[in-house]
């Protein structure tokens, strides 16, 4: 299917975990483009189009020699700006020999890349995620590729009404007499939800992670925000008898193409920071919820691809995802003319 692109290019997206980018050449498919990533001698991450200007051989098959990417086929060498600076078979470099180079920002755990109009990147900051860097917090994470478009993942992250059906064990709130109201708040570029739960017992994983006994009654607050097309962040707070236990679940959604998304996730917490059991419990529950959602999102995408995508019927509680769609629609309308 060749549906119109539904992800804006003028946006910072996570290209990789910082730990996964080293001095060897790696290639990643991001937003329908093949991108070469590496760290130069000074440790700065470089992102280039992974396609030699000469005969389209992926540059990632070549090698990095003295901060130059040397193509495996005929040895064209490129600098970090994407300019071809050496052609072994002749003295001068052919006019126009260059590959695209993309603005990069490294911030804590993530390497962000801007694949749209490079001149618009300067005025846009990558989202701040203090919990991933604050030494009073600890975090763990991973990566997952889902065969569905990134908007389905955003919808899923903003959607609280599927928990009872898809995640009954992790999200059990059997003690509730009524569902607390869902507060949805919008601003120009973001949308968030929040719910406060009255005092109730903890689930097994919550008690394992915090070390609180399961029968102590705690008020809980959860909220989540569509930060940008590239990022969703959830916050969960358990108000314990002595202190609050805060967990932040970060999901960077990077479209690989229109129907595949790479999810780079992190879970940060401000409690039991060097407790391996807490880490294990948090890893397991977050991986599990993502794996519970994945086959559903993939089946939806397969249906959309196979049978088309007429306007869906939304329910009242889908207001956050309706708004996220309208934010994305506007970003696409406003997008500057893209370089080829």
């Amino acid at each position: 299917m060749s549906a119109a692109r539904d992800y804006p290019l003028d946006c910072w997206y996570v290209a990789a975990s910082a730990a996964d980018v080293g001095s060897e050449l790696t290639s990643r498919r991001l937003l329908g483009r093949q991108v070469l990533l590496y760290r130069d001698g000074a440790g700065t991450v470089v992102a280039l189009e992974d396609r030699c200007a000469h005969r389209a051989l992926p540059l990632s098959m070549g090698s990095l020699v003295a901060d130059r990417v040397v193509c495996r086929y005929h040895g064209f060498a490129y600098d970090a700006t994407g300019a071809c600076v050496d052609v072994p078979s002749q003295d001068n470099v052919p006019f126009g020999a260059r590959v695209a180079s993309y603005p990069v920002r490294e911030a804590g755990t993530y390497v962000w890349v801007w694949l749209g109009n490079p001149r618009r990147s300067a005025g846009s900051a990558v989202p701040r995620m203090p919990w991933l860097e604050d030494p009073a917090w600890s975090s763990l994470g991973g990566e997952l590729t889902v065969a569905s478009g990134y908007l389905l993942l955003h919808e899923n992250a903003l959607d609280r009404t599927h928990f009872a059906f898809v995640h009954p064990d992790t999200a059990h709130r059997g003690y509730l007499e009524a569902e607390p109201p869902l507060k949805v708040e919008v601003s120009e570029t973001s949308v968030s939800y929040a719910r406060d739960f009255p005092a109730g017992p903890l689930t097994a994983w919550q008690s394992a992670a915090t070390g609180l006994p399961p029968d102590v009654l705690c008020v809980q607050r959860e909220s989540g925000v569509f930060v940008s097309p590239a990022l969703h962040v959830d916050h969960m707070e358990i108000v314990g008898p002595e202190r609050s236990y805060r967990t932040v679940f970060v999901r960077a959604f990077t479209p690989v193409d229109g129907s595949t998304t790479r999810v780079l996730w992190q879970v940060a917490r401000d409690y039991a920071t060097d407790d391996a059991l807490a880490s294990e419990s948090l890893r397991r529950v977050h991986e599990r919820t993502m794996l519970e959602d994945q086959p559903l999102l993939e089946a939806i995408q397969a249906t959309l691809d196979r049978d088309g995508a007429p306007r869906p019927v939304n329910a009242a509680a889908d207001i956050a995802s309706v708004k996220a769609h309208s934010i994305v629609r506007r970003l696409l309308e406003e997008e500057s003319p893209q370089p080829q």
């Binding site: 009954p168 949805v184 207001i319």
Partner: peptide, 16 residues
């Protein structure tokens, strides 16, 4: 647990 049939009230506001 069976899925709850309790309705959820949505409060929709703009950021202040």
């Amino acid at each position: 647990m069976t899925a709850s049939s309790t309705a959820i009230t949505t409060v929709y506001t703009e950021h202040v």
